[in-house]
Design a protein around this nucleic acid. Structure first.
Length: 434
RNA sequence: GGAGAGGUGCCGGAGCGGUUGAACGGGACGGUCUUGAAAACCGUUGUGCCCAUCGGGCACCGAGGGUUCGAAUCCCUCCCUCUCCGCCA
């Protein structure tokens, strides 16, 4: 959410931001209703002021035994009271509408970001080399099938399409990755958090999934809870409504969760196998920082996510997203994309986002400055650190051998009991380990 | 799910329906004292919105309604916390 005062004074900036992001322009309607809201509030405040004064006099009159005067004043106060009630009802409605529109105004992109759609994205860095094979590499679906580590069909039987089932070494690798990533982040000063996987509407508004992404989430009407699409939601809302001390900042969290996305309307490209699924595991990094440091913190957050990819020896590139490709709430985004040899594509595994105070205004997360000045909103940032399924895709496809086995990267082996390679699972031998 | 207790400022904790935005204590901050610190003493210490030059007004005591001339205080609904019981991984 932006500051309404800022919107009033920088109308064109805000409207341009919406245009550049490809969002509808709600500003003119907002300003109109803002004006109405203020006029009504002014009127109501004035009336309440009068009413308070008369009320006071009512008390005084009765106390001094002047019944006649008291009743007269009381009638006058009653009149005012009725008027106020009418106004308040009107004001409530107007404020409701005002609030709804405020939630629909997108964040401002950083001025240094290229304007345009996907084609305007900039590759700002690349790391590692795409692997070369002396044979035609298989994709992760084939590999999953051969090795018995991924079963899409049975997942569909249990829950529906795009609910993958990881089995055997597939599941084991997933679990190992989670542990590895959390360990790395923990060593670098992130506090490990295991949050709820469900969250209420208020939390969804706080981190800005609602209103825009409401239809992309699973919802449980009976409990009025949403399944989280990312642990950004619970992690960011951990401090909702709180006033932190400046000395508390920065706060770094690394949270693991399953994530649930309906992916409504996204059938088509890039949805095979593990590329786009309804449920996936992810480690998420969230930072709460002082406003002055959010630029620097954004860069270091990106490096933190990159560290995982380097550790796993995955070739990747860093993309600075253009305005049109950015999300509604973002101020600046880097995407991290890893190379997947079988797909022959770059896969997004991390989105590293700076929000400035966009989320903290919604969730009302403030801090008390050291110099005892007025309260300020913290800045929030988050990055996937990172998402598991596409990581598996790249790890499998890039590290495959001609025999159809998969070499496990060095760093991951200690987390897999020293296992070096994933081989075909002998189905008959149910106790087969490695 | 059932019974009970409770939700007040940064924290603890008062608060007959009528100058209570809120006693008191702690903390924090500033000052005095001190070579420095501690102790002691003095002082300051909520947020948001609106109008404005000084300044003024309004709202907020878990959330939302209601009663009343007037609500932190009375009533209703909901949420949360704690204790006990039940159920259960």
């Amino acid at each position: 959410m932006l500051d309404i005062k800022f919107i009033r004074e920088n109308t064109e900036t805000v409207r341009k931001a919406a245009r550049d992001k490809g969002e509808p322009d709600f500003v003119p309607g907002l300003l109109e209703i803002d004006d109405l809201r203020r006029r009504l509030q002014r009127k109501a405040d004035d009336l309440r002021h009068d009413q308070k004064a008369v009320s006071q006099e009512v008390g005084n009159a009765f106390k001094s035994g002047n019944l006649e005067e008291g009743n007269k004043l009381k009638a006058r106060a009653k009149e005012l009271s009725e008027k106020i009630k009418g106004l308040e009802e009107e004001l409530r409605k107007v404020e409701g509408d005002f609030g709804d529109i405020m939630l629909k105004i997108p964040n401002l992109p950083d001025p240094e970001i290229p304007v345009g759609g996907e084609e305007a994205n900039i590759i700002v860095d690349t790391w590692g080399e795409a692997p070369e094979f002396g044979f035609k590499p298989r994709d992760h679906i084939d590999l999953g099938d051969i090795l018995g580590i991924l079963d899409m069909e049975r997942g569909a039987k249990v829950a529906g399409r795009a609910f993958p089932v990881l089995m055997g070494d597939g599941s084991r690798m997933s679990r190992a990755l989670i542990a590895l990533m959390l360990d790395i982040h923990r060593r670098d000063g992130f506090l490990e958090v295991e949050p709820p996987f469900l969250a209420n509407r208020n939390a969804m508004i706080g981190s800005a999934q609602i209103p825009k992404l409401e239809d992309d989430m699973y919802y449980i009407p009976r409990e009025e809870l949403f399944l989280i699409p990312t642990s950004e939601v619970p992690l960011t809302n951990l401090h909702a409504g709180e006033i932190l001390a400046e000395s508390d900042l920065p706060i770094y969290y690394a949270g693991f969760s399953a994530n649930f996305r309906r992916e409504a309307g996204s059938y088509g490209a890039d949805t095979r196998g593990l590329l786009r699924v309804h449920q996936f595991d992810k480690v998420e990094l969230v930072k709460f920082v002082a406003p002055e440091s959010s630029g620097v913190e954004h860069e270091s957050l990106r490096e933190q996510a990159e560290k995982i990819l380097k550790t796993l020896e995955l070739p990747y590139r860093v993309k600075l997203l253009a305005t049109g490709d950015m999300s509604f709430a973002a101020h600046k985004i880097y995407d991290l994309e890893i190379w997947a040899a079988g797909e022959g594509k770059w896969l997004e595994v991390s989105s590293c986002t700076s929000f400035l105070d966009f989320q903290s205004r919604r969730a009302n997360i403030r801090f008390r400055p050291k110099d005892d000045g007025p309260l300020r909103f913290v800045h929030t940032l988050n990055a996937s650190g990172v998402a598991i399924p596409r990581l598996l895709v790249a790890l499998w496809e890039n590290n495959q051998t001609e025999r159809g086995t998969i070499v496990i990267p060095e760093a991951l082996r200690p987390y897999m009991g020293g296992q070096k390679e994933m081989r075909r699972r002998e189905v008959k031998d149910k106790t087969l380990q490695n």
